[in-house]
Amino acid sequence: MADLANILAVGILLGGTYALVSVGLNLIFGVIRVVNFAQGEFVMLGMYGAYAAYAVLGLDPAVALLVVLPALFVLGAALQRLVLARLRTEPTMQIFATFGLLMLIENAVLAATRGTAYSVPSAVAQASLSVGGVQVGASRLLALAAATLAAAGLGLFLRRTMLGRAIRAVAQDSAAARLMGVDVERIYWLTFGIGTALAGLAGCLLAPIYSLSPQIGTSFILPAFAVVVLGGLGSVLGAYVGGFIVGLTEAFAGYYLDPALKHAVLFAVFIGVLIVRPSGLFGQVGAEEVGLREQS
């Protein structure tokens, strides 16, 4: 029983991590219909940004957010405006370009850090709490809280503000949105920037938990993708819940099977869901774009 509680705890905390990483990716998918292969790299940049803020300014990661988030928003928005906007009608070239960005960012950081491994201390990192008899790292708990806040905040923004509604409108029918007076191109780079800033948020908060390496980005992109497809495109709630589904799956797979195979299990589950329920678990806007509704 204690084992089960432990697994659940690991799963939920991991889920919080994935939810945090995926919310931004989901927004970008849902609105711009672009698969941002480089999303994991923005998480990595958030981590290194937290480190830089610590090394140069002595800031705790939670405070470094104030610098890292705007920086990654600007970077993401600029990339969309300058690179991706030109490829709106070229989905194959979008894959090449975003994958190129993945390679570029990863190797740029590799070159800049020359492969030195860094770690970021945090006021919270050493602490751990006891929840229902299970030891829980405070950093992970903080990540979970942040994921919930971010998802809630994003949800509120999308539902209650004019700009948020405009973003949802673009996701549902961009031509009609234009007719409402919405500058769709502006919404694209704004949304992309928000998505990358959210990735940066995840990176900042996860910096104390993971040891930094330029390659860490790619270990996030795949579970994030699974989260988004399982949870439903364009659905903030779906991304949030999907994160937990993936986290729990990984936790259980890691415990009952070999930890080395947990991604394999995840992939198998993911494929299984696709075969059994082609519209994903929440079946939202844009599922046709994914091809989920098609039968061969």
Binding site: R165, R168, A169, Q172, D173, A175, A176, A177, L179, V285
Partner: peptide
């Protein structure tokens, strides 16, 4: 057809 936003 109106082109309303269906999920709003």
């Amino acid at each position: 057809g109106g082109r309303l936003f269906p999920f709003m």
